[in-house]
């Protein structure tokens, strides 16, 4: 149980966290629970729209993201872990602010208010803002010796519309360094993972992913830690390099440091087994 008083947040998991990256979701929920950050899943959430809706129909893209905003109860921030979902949710808010007519018509359509003052935050931002003291008090395993590449992919890039929004450049390092790990920054930390091209045109994505992994190997990292679940998947399934490295979800490393015990359940879902590395560092049994 948590030692801390609970702070409530609405939580938007998104399709990846809910399915392909269930291990990211499990470890995130574990971490949040230990830290007393109460992530309450947004009731009946739908897909944020993703690149496909954005590609095919702007109204659809806006509508899908906006419906999620309409489901968020007042009085607590909306938290996302997937950078892309965060992006589309924030984008919808910016669009609706500029377009009161659409805002009104969507509210009428659903019979629910869409609160445009809603705070939309990434979980790392939540950690930095509300959780740093809690992190120190709750850390159970030191990450000392773990050399990681903080892999953001395209997560901190954004269109000019969103440039004034808060993003989390550097926060992954801040948090994991506080827990004892050592960041390796001489690798491709901000190179896009290939996104949906991984499904449609793997021959384009494989060389790019290999460059990213090779750069991490060359920088003598033990592993990569990703901010985004899709990046984690693409880096694992598209890498054909001879030397491969484990790729963690940020929340997995966090939960490990916080003493979570159900890590076996997450790690069996990895294509590159991270357990030998963690056993070497005596982080897991």
């Amino acid at each position: 149980m948590s030692l801390h008083h609970q702070i409530d947040f609405s939580y938007f998991p998104g399709c990846s966290m809910a399915t392909t990256a269930a291990e990211a979701n499990m470890s995130l929920m574990q971490s949040a629970k230990i830290l007393g950050l109460n992530l309450i899943e947004l009731s009946d959430w739908n897909c944020c729209g993703s690149s496909s809706a954005q590609t095919m129909c702007k109204n659809l893209s806006l509508g899908m993201a906006a419906r999620n905003l309409s489901l968020a109860p007042a009085g607590r921030p909306l938290v996302a872990m997937c950078p892309r979902c965060l992006h589309y949710l924030r984008h919808a808010k910016v669009c609706l602010k500029k377009d009161p007519e659409t805002h009104r018509s969507l509210e009428e359509r659903w019979g629910r208010p869409i609160n445009l003052d809603l705070k939309i935050m990434h979980f790392m931002e939540v950690l930095v803002r509300f959780g740093l003291d809690r992190l120190k008090q709750s850390a159970k395993r030191s990450l000392t010796g773990l050399k990681f590449v903080p892999y953001y992919g395209c997560a901190v890039f954004r269109p000019p519309d969103l440039e004034k929004e808060k993003y989390y450049q550097g926060e992954m390092e801040d948090i994991l360094v506080a827990l004892g790990a050592e960041p390796i920054i001489g690798a491709y930390t901000h190179r896009c993972c290939g996104s949906f091209l991984s499904a449609t045109d793997p021959e384009i994505v494989t060389p790019l992913v290999n460059e990213i992994i090779d750069s991490a190997v060359a920088a003598k990292a033990h592993c990569l830690v990703t901010a985004c679940a899709m990046c984690q998947l693409n880096l694992e399934i598209r890498c054909t390099s001879r030397e491969r490295l484990p790729v963690f979800h940020f929340s997995e490393v966090l939960a490990l440091a916080l003493g979570a015990k159900d890590y076996e359940e997450w790690f069996v879902r990895h294509l590159v087994d991270p357990r030998p590395l963690l056993q070497n560092l005596a982080l897991v049994a």
Binding site: S51, Q54, G153, C154, F157, R158, P159, P160, H190, C192, G194, S195, F196, L197, D201, I204
Partner: peptide, 11 residues
């Protein structure tokens, strides 16, 4: 079609 909208260019 190749563009995935990673916004590297926009940034």
């Amino acid at each position: 079609w190749i563009c995935v909208g990673c916004h590297t260019c926009s940034s």
